[in-house]
Simulated scan of single mutants.
Amino acid sequence: MLNKPTLSVAETSRILDAARAEAEKNHWAVTIAVVDDGGHPLALLRLDGCAPIGAYIATEKARTAALGRRESKQYEDSVNGGRAAFLSAPLLTSLEGGVPVVVDGQVVGAVGVSGVKASEDAQIARAGAQSVAH
């Protein structure tokens, strides 16, 4: 039987806190979503001023990173590079801002952020993911 690390409430809270701190430091109104390794929601935080659609987009970015085991930007790069077929992939968004959470070499979940420029969304997501990664 295999054993693997999983995100607990404590780690999920740490991820949200780190991502929120990064967003607030830069005065960015975003939504932050945290999912488990299967893409199932663990937490969602929409900061004041973020559009309601941010909740949907952030969750889909996180789900994409968790299921794909890579940053959602890699799908965006593929689409921009001519692989339009990724646009029809189920449960995936090809937008930058989803980052996997890796612990002991295994993806245990992901963080998705939406609300500002794509690279800024990713910056916030990385801050959250790196708060528990090792």
Rank of each mutant, 00 (worst) to 15 (best):
A84T: 14
A85Q: 08
Q123M: 15
A55H: 00
A23N: 06
E76P: 01
D36Y: 06
R46D: 06
L67E: 04
G38K: 12
V30D: 04
H40I: 07
T12K: 02
K61A: 02
L67G: 10
G115S: 04
S119V: 13
R20T: 15
K117S: 15
G98S: 02
L42F: 11
R70V: 07
G82P: 01
D77R: 08
A66E: 00
P5G: 05
E24N: 12
A85C: 07
A10Y: 10
L87V: 03
I53M: 14
R46P: 10
L47Q: 03
I53D: 14
F86Q: 05
I15Y: 03
V101H: 00
A29Y: 12
A127H: 06
L42I: 09
I57Y: 03
A62G: 07
L87Q: 10
G115P: 01
H134V: 15
E22Y: 02
T12W: 06
R69G: 07
A19P: 04
Q106Y: 09
T6E: 14
G68T: 15
M1N: 10
A129S: 11
L95P: 00
T64W: 04
K4G: 13
E24C: 05
G39P: 08
D121V: 01
P90T: 02
L44A: 11
R69K: 15
A125P: 04
N80G: 06
G49E: 08
V116E: 13
N3Y: 15
A84C: 07
R126A: 14
F86K: 12
Y56K: 11
K25W: 12
K4W: 12
H27N: 15
T93R: 05
P5A: 11
A51L: 12
H27M: 10
A10R: 11
A85Y: 06
D121K: 02
A55D: 01
I57Q: 05
K25C: 13
Q74S: 13
D17Y: 07
A19N: 08
G98I: 00
R70C: 06
